[in-house]
Design a protein around this nucleic acid. Structure first.
Length: 231
DNA sequence: TAATCTTGTCATATTACGTCA
DNA sequence: GGTGACGTAATATGACAAGAT
């Protein structure tokens, strides 16, 4: 089975073979626009699945050897997955060294995307494949975006909390003012009719309302000055 | 010139490996 | 030693732009 999968272009083509092979072709600078998908299959199957690997066990051993022999293990994923995923899917994961990570991070600080030549030279410096550099940058951009989203989310959450608190406080204040206003009116209404002339009574009522409005305006101004200060 | 195809690159989602508690 | 969480390299997929036909 493993033999079959490793040495037939078809199985690989249905996975990611075409994509990778086309990439590799472009990375080699072979961009002559001879659009022949079959070329991709051939390139891919030879590069990823050397003929000496005859069985699945051999494949695993071979991968182990590659890992042991190199500072930067080469990923030689041979995708058996589509047919017998549960037993044979194996993907050796590259771990970047500290120096590699540092250099990649430094490059990312300079430019978050790479052009062809930047990618190529960085890959050479790092002793990685251009595709690996490209993938690293893609993942790095995704991580950056995710972190930024988290930060934004946290900020919005705090804004929401503070607005909610402010809303509660204002509601309470409105209630207080409402009762203050009602209390004042009631006091005047409770006075004996003969105790105050109607004109004076009216004046006091209006003054009372004006005082409430002043109070609200003052509070509002205070709120504006403090809230705009925090933002 | 418009339509179509191919290719390369990106963002995004997902998978799977390695490490650590 | 087994296990789950986590970080991250690798893969899959779809969208889009640019160039060729």
């Amino acid at each position: 089975m493993a033999d079959e999968h490793c040495n037939t272009g078809l199985g690989l083509r249905l996975g990611f073979g075409e994509y990778v092979a086309c990439r590799e072709r472009s990375e080699k600078g072979n961009n002559n626009n001879n659009n022949k998908p079959m070329d991709c299959n051939l390139d891919f199957s030879f590069s990823l699945c050397p003929k000496e690997i005859k069985s699945l066990d051999d494949h695993v051993k071979h991968k182990q050897t590659m890992v042991d022999d190199q500072d930067y293990p080469v990923n030689i994923n041979c995708d058996y997955s589509n047919n017998n995923k549960n037993t044979t899917t194996e993907r050796k994961k590259l771990r970047l060294t500290k120096q590699q990570s540092t250099l990649l991070e430094d490059s990312f600080k300079l430019h978050t995307t790479l052009n062809q030549s930047q990618k190529q030279s960085l890959a050479e410096q790092l002793n990685l494949k251009p595709r690996q550099v490209e993938v690293w940058f893609q993942n790095r951009r995704a991580r950056t975006k995710l972190k930024q989203t988290e930060v934004d989310c946290e900020f919005l959450k705090k804004c929401c909390e503070s607005l909610s608190d402010e809303n509660k406080r204002l509601k309470k204040e409105v209630q207080e003012l409402q009762s203050l206003k009602e209390g004042g009116s009631q006091f005047i209404q409770q006075l004996p009719k003969a105790a105050m002339c109607p004109t004076c009574c009216d004046k006091i009522m209006k003054k009372n309302e004006a005082a409430v409005i002043d109070h609200v305006v003052l509070k509002n101004n205070k709120w504006h000055s403090s809230y705009s200060g925090t933002n």
